[in-house]
Nucleic acid binder design. Structure first.
Length: 430
RNA sequence: GCAGAGAUCGCAUAGCCCGGUAGUGCGGUGGACUUGAAAUCCACUGUCGUAAGACGCGGGGGUUCGAAUCCCUCUCUCUGCGCCA
């Protein structure tokens, strides 16, 4: 959410940004309209409150001096003021709510380097790593590989929960665990503190870190407790400091988190989403940084560097893409994606997303930094980046490292974590 | 899950029984004094608002002319009991 003062004092910047994104200014105008309405209503309400407060003070005086008639007259006046105030209070509240509901849907201000474009076709390639693997056989899709090796049981998962859930079995499940350990240690060795967050959050905290629309399409709600299953550890790890002022010398706060992620994936269908590419539950190792505004852009590059180094170690071929205006979404000011080459599918697909959210989340969460004992402290910047989403990493690994017989070569850095094993063997049953 | 005790302006603490402008200490900011610093003294130090002013005592609601204070409710913390990986 953008600071309301930005609308009042610097609306030209918001308008210029909307032009870049190619969206209309209607919402900006509405925010300004309701803000003005709210300011006026607040002023009127305050005037009446003042009148009432002054009058009410006369009651005890009148009673003390024994002037019962005067006391009754004041009581009547105060009562009618009270009714009028209640009415105005309701209007004031309504105007503010309207203003903020619209304001929350207005996207973050983009970084100047974000390329302009209408959709994902406008994304630009930032850099390319590794070699596109060559095969002397027809490479299989990950879906075929998990099927023939019995590494994943989607059917029985569908039986006990629903579609897009899965049992992960045998060597592929072991590789998943190795990836978790590998990624946590890799990022941890760069000064990031390992944190395991809760996997449910309450509504209030959740509204601070996501689009309101996500409650309908992304998150699972838990009844009767009114909790939400987290869609990524970014959410609890960013909301963790909600409403707090972090001592300046503790910043930047670098965190590497691991959690299961739960996503409803409403409305997603199609060939490209088969297998375990797009699922309702997966595990993700995430980098989170809470930083001072001056540091956030260099830390954004640091997060990307961590990803690049990690994925290079895994020996995979992928591109880094600079996401364009039309493909950005509301929260990030700038976003890099890593897109791995999937030889079975014959295309590059997203495996990592690395965002600087600047003060957009922190404004709503009211996370500030500074010296303890100070009022009116500045807002922090928040950044997040996938390190490894294990299900998608598994897809990239098995497609790029597949052998003619359908088995898979294990990336060298993971061999020690697999007890020296170098090839993923099929599961014996299923 | 049950019973009891709690939540007050960054931190600590008073006020609550018995309703009437939220006080004090620490921390912070500015100033005075000082060559400089410490110490000391003075002012300011929650939120919204250009301001006037309003609002603010964990959240929400109620009673009342008026609520930190009385009532209801929710959340969280502590203590004890119960249950339990």
């Amino acid at each position: 959410m953008l600071d309301i003062h930005m609308f009042r004092d610097n609306q030209a910047q918001i308008r210029a940004d909307h032009d870049k994104r190619g969206i209309s200014h209607d919402k900006i105008d509405e925010v300004l309209k309701y803000d003005k309405m709210w300011l006026n209503l607040q002023h009127d309400t305050n005037q009446l409150r003042q009148k009432k407060n002054i009058a009410a003070r006369g009651i005890s005086e009148a009673k003390k001096s024994g002037d019962e008639a005067k006391a009754q007259a004041i009581l009547a006046e105060v009562a009618s003021l009270g009714a009028e105030i209640s009415r105005l209070e309701a209007e004031t509240q309504a105007a503010k709510e309207q203003r903020d509901t619209i304001r929350m849907s207005i996207p973050n201000i983009l970084h100047p380097d974000v390329p302009e474009g209408d959709d994902e076709s406008g994304n630009t390639v930032h850099s390319v790593y590794g070699e596109k693997p060559e095969f002397d056989f027809e490479p299989r899709t990950h879906n075929e590989l998990i099927e023939m090796n019995k590494w994943v049981d989607l059917k029985r998962a569908a039986k006990i929960v629903g579609s897009r859930f899965f049992f992960l079995k045998g060597d592929l499940a072991r590789l998943e665990l190795a990836l978790q350990n590998y990624a946590v240690d890799f990022i941890g060795n760069r000064g990031y503190t390992f944190v395991q967050p809760p996997v449910m959050m309450n509504r209030q905290a959740y509204e601070g870190v996501t689009d309101l629309g996500d409650f309908e399409t992304v998150m699972y709600g838990i009844e009767p407790d009114k909790y939400y299953m987290i869609a990524t550890s970014e959410h609890p790890l960013t909301a963790m400091y909600m409403g707090e002022t972090i001592p300046e010398d503790q910043l930047p706060l670098r965190i590497v988190g691991v959690s299961p992620c739960f996503r409803r994936e409403v409305g997603s269908h199609g060939q490209s989403d088969l297998g375990i590419w797009r699922v309702h539950q997966f595990t993700k190792i995430e980098q989170i940084v809470i930083a001072k505004p001056d540091d956030s852009w260099s830390i954004h590059e640091e997060l990307l560097k961590n990803c690049v180094d990690l994925w290079n170690e895994l020996g995979l071929h992928y591109e880094v893409v600079n996401i364009c205006t039309g493909d950005m979404g509301t929260v990030a000011a700038k976003k890099y994606d890593l897109e791995a080459w999937l030889p079975g599918a014959g295309q590059y697909k997203e495996i990592v997303s690395c965002s600087n959210c600047t003060d957009y989340q922190a404004n709503r969460l009211q996370i500030k930094y500074g010296q303890p004992g100070h009022a009116n402290q500045p807002i922090v910047h928040t950044l997040n980046s996938t390190a490894v989403a294990t299900s998608r990493a598994l897809v990239a690994i098995i497609e790029q490292n597949q052998l003619a017989d359908g088995r898979v070569k294990i990336p060298e850095v993971l061999v020690p974590l697999m007890g020296g094993q170098t090839i993923l063997e099929p599961c014996q049953w299923g």
